[in-house]
Amino acid sequence: MKRIFIREEFCIGCRLCEIHCLVAHSSSKDIIKVFKKEKPRPISRIIVEQKGYNSFSLQCRHCDKPYCLEACMSGALYRDEKSGAILQDKEKCVGCWMCIMVCPYGVIKREINNKKVSSKCDLCIDREIPICVERCPNQALILKEV
């Protein structure tokens, strides 16, 4: 199984990962259209943390023993058998925020655009390399087999 690893000493805080994540999860997949026309604008599933000169890009760790999966009362969260990623059925999610309460990384966000749902990294399972890893200019995010 492939997982994203964070190398914070290489992160320059450019936040390109956030932008590309947002575009990859938009309906048009077009950076200009997303920012100018898509309303509500989709949200990035990444959190860039920054304090002084330190920064890093954080996304779901797709844990072996995921707290979110146990806490999800609607049954919206599940593990994709092939990739091992923790994925979400947005139709089922009711926005109870139990996953936010238990995730020790704090990587699940609230999305309150059309309907209240939680929003998390899907490891870009349709792509060979997750977009944030691919577009990171400084290899602060890398993909490794675990």
Binding site: Y67, I100, C103, P104, Y105, I108, K109, R110
Partner: peptide, 8 residues
């Protein structure tokens, strides 16, 4: 409630 899980 953002990032509450870190505290948990």
């Amino acid at each position: 409630i953002d990032r509450a899980g870190i505290i948990t």
